[in-house]
Structures are given as structure tokens and as C-alpha cells.
């Protein structure tokens, strides 16, 4: 590692210095590992933790605004997270205690790992990413923010300021993942669902997203539409599963889990979703 370091104190100072040669240092839990391993070559580091504009977890009109430099530990301690159960769940299993104390939501999305804990949750919530540069500000839908493995839509002079998560009152939110160990590992596969009006089939809107099965988060909107606004049967989930398997492209060379394991995880996820959305008397009983 051989780089210079600076710590801007305001967003304006940061934007004045941000260019293609600079890497932003938030929690450092990815950047320092990648710099040391040689995966990233870094000339200049800007430590953005002292910038007040990148802080705060606030209830705002229509949702929750999370400063890019807020840690996963801060998210877990925020009372606002009660209303965002899938986000709370993903924040509680991300990394381990010490990693959550440093790692930030902004860093997590900018690192853009296909198995990042927050990606599937931000996708189903249709989160908006607030971006700033010397040229001005813009807001990008999360699904358009990530453009590939470790790639985002950010221009060299742009930084993520905050993440806006639209509220989902009375929605059912779940986050699931498979890992090699419970304590500390990247998700080998993950999935999230957000279901509006979960107990009223005629009004129900189902969203779900899966990680590590494509280069970016996979959100099958056409399949979601087929499952929404109607009572659900096991046959519907079978059809959805087949349609999903026809679309996804899990890499056989993945370090994490085999394509078969990921397909099985999706199958289990859909089964669980069906059980959660089906009135108790007609739930499928496990066959003895």
C-alpha cells in the first residue's frame, strides 16, 4: 500500500477534491483489504467519515434517509429501522460485530459486491441513491446504480451522499441468505421480499430480489406481476420458479455457492413466501 491520505471536513471540500485518482474511505472494511491484496491500486484516499452531510438516519417525507457514512451498527440502533424489517435483518447479519461498527451503507453499495447484504433489500424497497458532484446533484434508482460486479454508475467526480428508502407501511418484509458459517461471511446467496397488502390477495403487490445469481441484483418484475393481485397456489410458485430459473445465470465458477445451491435457495424462498401469504388452514402440510 502506498497512497496519500486527506480528510475533508465538508461535502463541498470533498467534491472539490474528488476525481478519478481518489478513492473514498468510509469504513475501510473492503478498501483496505482490496488495497493490501493488490485487487485495487489506490493513489489517494479521501477519508469521508468527518463530513456531517454524509451522516444521519432521518424519517423524511415518504420514507427514510440514511447518510452514506452511517454504519450498520448505527442502523441497527436506530428506532426508525423497526418499520423496515428486511433492512434491519440484513444489517444484523452483515459481517460481524466489529465489521458492522465500521462498515457503512454507502460503502456497501459502492463496493457493489453481487452478494452484498443490502443490495436485495434496497432493490425491493426501490431505494433512491442521492449523488452529488461539483456539477450538481442527481437521484438514481438503486437498480440502475449498480451496473456490474464491483461497478456502479458513479462518474469519477461523483459521490453518494445518502440513500432514500421509501416507506412500506404494513408491508411484509423478509431477508434471507445462505452462508458457509453463521458468524462472518459474505452471503453465498441472498434474497429479499417486500409484499404490500399481504393479507388481501386482490390488492397484494409482491416484490422480490435475489443476489449472486446475476452480475447485479436480480429483480424479476414480470414474474412479480404474475404473482400479484390474486390468491396464490403452489402451482403459481412452481411456475414462478421455472421462469426464474430460465432467466438467472449463476456462475459455475462462483466462489460462493454452486448454481444448484442457489436454485434450491430460491425454491425454499418461494415456498416460505407462499406459506407466509397463504391463510393458515390451506397451507401445505409437510409430507411425513
Amino acid at each position: 500500500m502506498n497512497f496519500t491520505y486527506a480528510q475533508p471536513r465538508t461535502l463541498a471540500e470533498l467534491l472539490a477534491q474528488k476525481d478519478a485518482q481518489t478513492h473514498l474511505l468510509a469504513g475501510g472494511t473492503d478498501l483496505l483489504v482490496d488495497t493490501r491484496s493488490g485487487k485495487k491500486s489506490v493513489a489517494r484516499v479521501l477519508d469521508i467519515k468527518a463530513i456531517p452531510e454524509l451522516r444521519g438516519i432521518r424519517a423524511v417525507k415518504g420514507g427514510l434517509q440514511i447518510g452514506a457514512c452511517e454504519t450498520f451498527t448505527h442502523l441497527l440502533r436506530s428506532p426508525h429501522l423497526q418499520k423496515y424489517p428486511a433492512l434491519r435483518e440484513c444489517a444484523s447479519v452483515m459481517g460481524c460485530h466489529e465489521i458492522r461498527n465500521r462498515a457503512t451503507l454507502g460503502g456497501n453499495i459502492c463496493n457493489a459486491s453481487p452478494g452484498s447484504e443490502s443490495s436485495v433489500v434496497l432493490s425491493v424497497h426501490e431505494a433512491q441513491i442521492n449523488i452529488a458532484s461539483r456539477r450538481g446533484t442527481r437521484r438514481v434508482a438503486y437498480d440502475d446504480f449498480t451496473t456490474g460486479v464491483n461497478r456502479t454508475c458513479l462518474e469519477p467526480d461523483e459521490v453518494v451522499v445518502s440513500i432514500f428508502i421509501p416507506s412500506a407501511p404494513r408491508a411484509l418484509g423478509i431477508y434471507r441468505r445462505i452462508t458457509r458459517t453463521a458468524g462472518m461471511d459474505l452471503a453465498c446467496w441472498n434474497g429479499a421480499a417486500l409484499v404490500f397488502s399481504p393479507n388481501t390477495p386482490a390488492k397484494r403487490e409482491i416484490r422480490f430480489a435475489f443476489g449472486t445469481v446475476m452480475s447485479t441484483t436480480y429483480r424479476p418484475r414480470a414474474i412479480e406481476a404474475q404473482l400479484s393481485r390474486r390468491p396464490l397456489t403452489p402451482a403459481d410458485m412452481d411456475a414462478a420458479y421455472e421462469a426464474i430459473c430460465a432467466e438467472i445465470q449463476p456462475r459455475a465458477s462462483s466462489l460462493r455457492a454452486s448454481p444448484d445451491e442457489k436454485r434450491r435457495a430460491i425454491r425454499n424462498f418461494l415456498n416460505e413466501l407462499l406459506a407466509l401469504l397463504t391463510p393458515a388452514p390451506t397451507r401445505r402440510q409437510p409430507t411425513a
Binding site: 475501510g28 472494511t29 493490501r36 491484496s37 451498527t73 465489521i99 465500521r102
Partner: peptide, 22 residues
């Protein structure tokens, strides 16, 4: 690289990995 926990210390009241902090 932050995986094993052997370098854990307390910084400003929170447990952290000293290998992942400059």
C-alpha cells in the same frame, strides 16, 4: 484482512479490527 478477530481493540467505545483501521 478482518476475518479472524485476533486484532480486536476498542476505539471510541466500539470493538473494531485494528488491522482494518489506518
Amino acid at each position: 484482512e478482518g476475518e479472524c478477530g485476533a486484532c480486536t481493540i476498542i476505539m471510541n467505545g466500539e470493538a473494531i479490527r485494528a488491522c482494518l483501521v489506518l
